[in-house]
Design a protein around this nucleic acid. Structure first.
Lengths: 144, 144
DNA sequence: GTCAATGCAAAGACTTTGCAATCTA
DNA sequence: TAGATTGCAAAGTCTTTGCATTGAC
């Protein structure tokens, strides 16, 4: 499997776009993050080591990463758009807390199996999954 | 099954809240809409017959309808939050064909069970599910 | 050197909130 | 009548955009 940098740089070249320093920095930050992330978190992370990447550039880069197949738009939570890796990552089940907004990413092999079973009935070949459950996390339900 | 109006009015009463005229109008509009909807669409729809319901009130009523279990937050699309009915609609697994766009709505009891099993590990109490799988439907895979 | 990309700040879009007036129970 | 609710407008939050400058190829 190719490195994300290679995928991105190829993508940019075929579109006649340029692999700039901010784009490299953003890509690196995105792929050192293991959770789903939003623009603000990216901005803070990048700021820890680089002082010269603006929010605007991050906002402008996200759609490119999506189009390149490296990330995808994930849930929206508390008015913020979240992203997550798709490149090199297996599917996750998102457990979203309605109270505090926490998002737990859980392994979903068993859920996928259950879906495959259903898909079989319809002769449907599934490739990607979007799975989320909303509810209340343990911390929040203890506080009630 | 009780009418949404009854459910809402009971919900409000148990919370010590009041069933006001704007809330009745909003509820009615929400349940005459069959598609997913957003606040703006609701506002326009209501304006066709009532001139005295503000956007602010719609924004304030949506969370109540969610809490009452009548609607749920759905996808976010083009920076707008969408809602959809849940009352009277059981959860579905959506099998979405990437080729022809067909959406198969399948029963997902088994998938929910699998999710509950995972949620249990995290002490997460799930209440709503958003489940979709993208792939290729039988008709489209035959044509390849 | 050319043209895309950046940073900044301003603008935009959607949503939330403070407050005085109003209405439900 | 008490206290919740409303409409309005102002404020907030996230995201997008115009423009002069900078930088990649």
């Amino acid at each position: 499997m190719q490195k994300p940098e290679i995928v991105f740089s190829n993508f940019l070249r075929t579109k006649g776009l340029k692999l700039t320093s901010p784009r490299k920095i953003i890509l690196e930050a995105v792929f050192t993050t293991h959770e789903h992330f939003n623009v603000d978190a990216m901005y803070d992370l990048i700021r820890q080591t680089h002082s010269n990447v603006s929010r605007a550039t991050i906002y402008r880069t996200m759609p490119l990463l999506v189009e390149a197949g490296l990330i995808k738009q994930s849930v929206r939570c508390q008015s913020k758009d979240y992203y997550e890796h798709t490149y090199g990552h297996s599917n996750h089940l998102h457990l979203i807390c309605k109270v505090c907004g926490e998002i737990i990413e859980a392994d979903c092999k068993e859920v996928e199996k259950a879906i495959e079973k259903i898909a079989l009935k319809y002769n449907f070949k599934s490739t990607e999954f979007d799975l989320s459950a909303r509810g209340i996390c343990s911390a929040c339900s203890e506080q009630e």
